[in-house]
Computed example of a mutant assay.
Amino acid sequence: MTATQLPRVAAPQGRARRRRRPSPSRAALPLLAPFCLLFGVFFLLPIGYAIHESLYAVRRSGLGFGTPERVFAGFDNYAKVFDDGIFLSGVGRLLLFGFVQVPVMLGLALLLALLLDGTAARCKPFFRLVYFLPYAVPGVIAAIVWAFLYTPQISPFGLDLLADDVVLGSIGNIVTWTWTGFNMLVIYSALQAVPRDIYEAAAIDGAGPLRIAWQIKIPMVRPSLALTAVFSVIGTLQLFNEPRVLSDVTANVPKDYTPLMWSLQVALDRNDYALGSAIAVVLAVLTGGLSLLFLRLSSWLTTRGAR
Results as ranks from 00 to 15, higher is better:
Ser89Trp: 00
Thr250Ile: 13
Ala57Lys: 05
Val167Ile: 15
Gly64Pro: 04
Ser263Glu: 07
Ala267Val: 00
Phe240Val: 06
Arg8Val: 14
Phe72Thr: 09
Asp269Trp: 02
Thr180Ile: 06
Met1Cys: 13
Ala284Thr: 15
Val186Asp: 03
Tyr56Glu: 04
Leu239Val: 06
Ala27His: 02
Thr2Met: 13
Pro138Gln: 11
Phe231Glu: 11
Val104Gly: 01
Gln153Val: 13
His52Glu: 13
Gln153Asn: 12
Ala213His: 07
Val221Gln: 05
Val281Tyr: 02
Val137Pro: 02
Ala201Ile: 08
Ala190Trp: 02
Ala113Gly: 09
Asp83Glu: 12
Thr236Asp: 08
Pro152Ser: 10
Pro30Gly: 12
Phe65Ile: 09
Ile234Lys: 14
Leu111Asp: 03
Phe182Cys: 03
Asn183Cys: 13
Leu114Asn: 09
Arg93Lys: 15
Ala202Asp: 04
Ser277Glu: 05
Gly14Ser: 10
Pro22Ser: 12
Ala16Val: 12
Leu283Phe: 03
Ser61Val: 10
Ala193Cys: 01
Phe87Pro: 05
Leu29Val: 15
Leu210Gln: 12
Gly90Trp: 01
Pro7Thr: 07
Pro254Gly: 07
Trp177Met: 09
Ser298Thr: 09
Leu185Ser: 10
Ala10Leu: 12
Thr250Pro: 12
Gln13Phe: 14
Arg21Pro: 00
Ser61Pro: 01
Val166Thr: 14
Ala79Gln: 13
Arg128Leu: 11
Ala79Ser: 13
Asp84Gln: 14
Pro46Ile: 06
Asp117Leu: 06
Arg20Thr: 12
Asp165Pro: 02
Ala11Glu: 15
Phe82His: 00
Leu110Glu: 08
Ala193Ser: 14
Phe157Ala: 06
Ala203Pro: 03
Asp164Cys: 01
Leu38Phe: 14
Asp160Leu: 02
Ala28Trp: 11
Leu111Tyr: 10
Pro103Gln: 05
Pro103Ala: 02
Cys123Ala: 15
Ile51Gln: 03
Gly206Ile: 06
Arg18Leu: 13
Trp177Glu: 04
Ile154Asn: 01
Gly92Leu: 11
Pro24His: 07
Leu44Tyr: 05
Pro125Tyr: 09
Leu162Phe: 06
Met1Ala: 14
Pro152Met: 10
Gly139Tyr: 03
Leu31Arg: 12
Ala226Gln: 11
Ser170Cys: 07
Arg18Phe: 05
Val221Ala: 02
Pro7Gln: 08
Pro243Cys: 07
Arg296Glu: 03
Leu29Pro: 06
Gly288Thr: 03
Tyr188Thr: 04
Pro156Lys: 04
Gly85Gln: 05
Ala201Arg: 11
Ala147Gln: 06
Glu242Lys: 01
Gln215Pro: 00
Ser224Asn: 09
Cys36Asn: 03
Leu191Arg: 10
Met184Thr: 08
